[in-house]
Amino acid sequence: MDDARARFEIVYRETYGRITAYTVRRCASPQDAADVVAETFAIAWRRIGELPDGEEAALWLYGVARKVLANHRRGEFRRQARNVRLDTEMADLYGASPDSGVELRAIAQIFQSLSDDDRELLSLVAWEGLDRQEIAVVLGLSRNAVRVRLHRARRRFARALAEADVRFTSESRLIPAERQL
């Protein structure tokens, strides 16, 4: 039991911040995020034998957190409050570059209008900084399926931006060039 506890404590210390950030960006309130994080790590403790080693542990926890969030959402009112929060967060996230020429409100509305799956994929890249292989582990998909879905999500987002006449240059890209997959 001591080995399992020590292993859990190490994984907890190494991943708590990332898993918390992941859930905070997806919950309507800090209290909801705290509940999701607590449940995620409770599951990790109960299933310590299934917890992978190294960086795979964080990816496994992202997958667990994703499922806990899905269960949490089923019991919630719907996502109206979350969408309002997302608008604010998008403005805060990209508002630091006033010379970008990006129409933040339009971008937030367009991002909000995407399907849950498209928003999740784009968020895993932009907010969590995950690559295709890591996303595949989190979502339980093949790397190729992630590649195709991510390409399509980006294309739908770009098309929606173009239809709304939102223009941006390579200097004001929504996703930094070093994170492009």
Rank of each mutant, 00 (worst) to 15 (best):
D87W: 10
G101I: 12
Y62G: 09
F168T: 06
Y94W: 15
L61E: 02
A70F: 01
P52T: 12
E9C: 13
A136K: 05
L104H: 03
V166P: 01
T88H: 14
A106V: 15
A70N: 00
A158N: 09
V36P: 05
D116W: 08
R73G: 04
A96L: 10
V68R: 03
V102R: 04
W127Q: 11
A126C: 13
N71F: 07
V84T: 12
A108Y: 02
S172R: 13
E120V: 03
L104W: 04
R66C: 06
L104F: 04
A108I: 08
G54F: 07
A177N: 12
D92W: 12
L59G: 05
L174D: 06
E9S: 15
D117I: 01
A160K: 09
A65T: 04
A34I: 07
L141M: 14
L121H: 01
Q31P: 01
A162R: 09
I19Y: 01
L93R: 15
S170G: 02
A164W: 02
V68W: 00
D165I: 02
R143P: 04
V102K: 02
S113P: 05
Q80R: 08
L161V: 00
I48K: 06
D118N: 02
A91N: 10
L139R: 12
A96F: 09
L181G: 07
R149P: 01
R73H: 08
R154W: 08
Q180W: 11
N144Y: 04
M1V: 10
A160Y: 00
W127E: 14
T15Y: 00
D116T: 14
A177V: 15
R149E: 05
V148K: 06
P176K: 06
A160Q: 05
R132A: 11
R73K: 06
A33I: 05
G75V: 03
D117T: 06
R159D: 15
Q109V: 11
A108F: 06
L124F: 13
N144Q: 14
S97N: 14
E163C: 03
E50Q: 14
R73E: 09
I43R: 12
I110M: 02
R66G: 01
A38S: 15
G54L: 10
D53I: 04
R132P: 03
A145T: 11
L124Q: 13
E163Q: 14
F168Y: 15
L93Q: 11
R7V: 05
A6T: 15
I48A: 11
F168N: 03
C27E: 01
L141E: 10
